[in-house]
């Protein structure tokens, strides 16, 4: 049973990353109509920024948790201003191709300087050690990742669904021209939205740095799994992305325990099943 709980925990952690990343993808897709293929690369950048902050600037994990998403978010906003904004009005596919190119560039540059091996990032002192829960031993850092991700996801949901800013955002998703006519600066909002989505990816990167090590290709395969998560959940609802993300992580964890050979593929197989039964995805509307 210990092993089962351990795999469940791993599943919850992966689920946190799926949720944070698919949430960012959904937010970006809503505003920009772009599937951000660079999301995995930006997640990786988040982890690297945390690594640089610690090793070059002596800035600890807690500050990195705040600063890395801001730094990578600004980088994302620069990308949006200089490149992505020119794609408005073009076919969706160009957004995919452009961000795929950006992902190749970013990952290539990091691979050149850091190879493919992982760099260690120590768990902060306050979160070292573990707790005995009676039925299992819980490493504190892992518990922290799950709880913190959940809080961030819910905060994002609250921001978009319950605040005035979020209302503008949702309105601009439905009809940007009309919202502009009301005097809202929609292009700036689009830039900020991209920054927010990218920031969430970078945050996931910082959280994963102590667990998965910091590697240039850490986001390359992850993003494909997240795409499958997005296909399963649909990008229509914020809460849908969060729930699907965590649920698939847990299912993956359970698969690791019961049938480890399929743990790499279970999310994709589920995607196929969902497509066969309900092609629009679990929460999605027709595209």
């Amino acid at each position: 049973m210990q092993a089962l709980y351990a795999q469940l925990l791993v599943g919850l952690i992966n689920g946190s990353f799926y949720a944070l990343l698919s949430l960012g993808l959904a937010v970006i897709f809503g505003m920009l109509n772009i599937i951000n293929f660079a999301h995995g690369a930006l997640y990786m950048m988040g982890a690297f920024v945390a690594y640089f902050l610690l090793n070059l600037g002596g800035i600890n994990y807690w500050w990195a948790l705040l600063l890395a998403p801001i730094i990578v978010g600004i980088f994302g906003m620069i990308l949006e201003r200089t490149m992505l904004q020119w794609l408005t009005g073009l076919d969706h596919l160009y957004g995919l191709l452009l961000t795929f190119g950006i992902a190749l560039i970013v990952q290539g540059v990091f691979q050149n300087y850091f190879g493919s091996s992982g760099l260690p990032y120590a768990i902060p002192d306050q979160l070292k050690g573990g707790m005995n829960l009676g039925f299992m031993f819980l490493p504190i850092y892992r518990g922290w990742v799950v709880v913190f991700s959940l809080v961030v996801c819910l905060a994002t949901w609250f921001l978009i669904e319950k605040t005035r800013l979020g209302a503008y955002l949702r309105a601009a998703t439905e009809n940007p021209t009309l919202v502009r006519a009301f005097g809202v600066n929609v292009p700036r909002m689009i830039t900020l939205t991209y920054g927010l989505g990218v920031g969430l990816a970078a945050l996931a990167g910082v959280l994963s740095a102590p667990i998965n090590q910091v590697r240039p290709l850490m986001g390359a395969d992850l993003i494909i799994v997240v795409f499958a998560v997005v296909v399963i959940g649909g990008m229509g609802s914020i809460m849908g992305s969060i729930i699907t993300g965590f649920a698939l992580g847990v299912i993956e964890g359970l698969t690791k325990y019961f049938y480890p050979e399929a743990s790499n593929t279970v999310v994709f197989v589920l995607m196929v099943l969902v497509l066969l039964v309900k092609p629009t995805g679990l929460t999605g509307r027709a595209a």
């Binding site: 191709l97 452009l98 190119g101 992902a103 190749l104 560039i105 990952q107």
Partner: peptide, 12 residues
């Protein structure tokens, strides 16, 4: 790995 970077740049 610069080949990857160049390919990405061509995409962009």
């Amino acid at each position: 790995q610069w080949v990857t970077v160049i390919q990405g740049s061509i995409f962009v």
